[in-house]
């Protein structure tokens, strides 16, 4: 039954090569921790992606309860954490996952750097990887404000102040982030939109580019 549905689609769209390419490509011995334990350093990229998936899933559940306005934001996070079944776990995974994804990405970057894997022909993939790094930092910065407690509020205030001190572009960056004269209602909705729509969209596009490139070029050879 399933097989005949698959065949029906495959006859029309020829989908087999797409996934067989991903599934069948050979993983060389030098990146396989089952053969060389030290090859665990090659796991960091995959783990970064794994935790990113956790972040997206837990974030989707958080938005079911979170209310992005200054009156209710704190109360909704408080409610989510203490009253909703498993709410504390989901928020905890999102909170700690945010730190973990930075750690894993950092380790992945160092692995690529010290194994010289960014060298020709993989320069573009390195640049895209750095863009992913900056997007992740942006996600961390915007997500920090959302619980709307004092820690969130003052960290954002200081962050925007620092951005404001950049010559020429500073006041525009500040206006873009703050959306008004103070860190307030507008800032919260902007940060929410940036955190939930803009940056994840950019992140997914960059991840797709990252993966297509690695598939196209293959992993770098042994040292």
């Amino acid at each position: 039954m399933i097989k005949s549905i698959y065949n029906w689609i495959d006859e029309r769209l020829d989908i087999t090569p797409m996934w067989r390419d991903v599934a069948d490509h050979e993983v060389p011995e030098h990146v396989n921790p089952a053969h060389h334990f030290s090859a665990f350093v090659y796991c960091f990229g995959g783990l970064t992606f794994f935790i990113t998936v956790i972040q997206i899933l837990s974030g989707m559940f958080l938005t079911m309860y979170y209310v992005p306005d200054i009156i209710n934001a704190y109360a909704s996070v408080d409610y989510l954490q203490s009253k909703v079944a498993f709410g504390g776990i989901v928020r905890g995974m999102h909170h700690w996952g945010a730190s973990l994804v930075i750690v894993m990405m950092f380790l992945h970057t160092l692995r690529v750097f010290f194994t010289g894997s960014y060298k020709a022909p993989r320069e573009m993939n390195w640049v895209v990887g750095m863009l992913i790094f900056f997007i992740m930092l942006g996600l961390g910065f915007t997500g920090y404000l959302l619980p709307w407690d004092n820690k969130a509020y003052y960290a954002t205030k200081v962050g925007i102040q620092i951005a404001d001190s950049v010559p020429i572009a500073g006041p525009y960056i500040k206006q873009l982030m703050q959306g008004g004269d103070i860190v307030g209602a507008q800032t919260l909705t902007r940060f929410f939109a940036i955190h939930v729509f803009f940056l994840p969209g950019a992140l997914l596009a960059m991840l797709a580019a990252h993966f297509i490139m690695i598939r196209k070029q293959g992993i770098s050879g042994p040292l």
Binding site: G92, M93, H95, G97, Y144, D149, N150, K151, Y153, Y154
Partner: peptide, 29 residues
């Protein structure tokens, strides 16, 4: 990650108070 989540709940302070002059601002680590 799950052990960390259970051992250490995600922190939440008190509601943002723009007039609180005593708060020590601190960005994420």
């Amino acid at each position: 990650l799950l052990v960390l989540t259970i051992a250490e709940p995600a922190p939440l302070g008190y509601p943002a108070d723009p007039l609180n002059a005593a708060f020590i601002p601190m960005p994420d680590w």
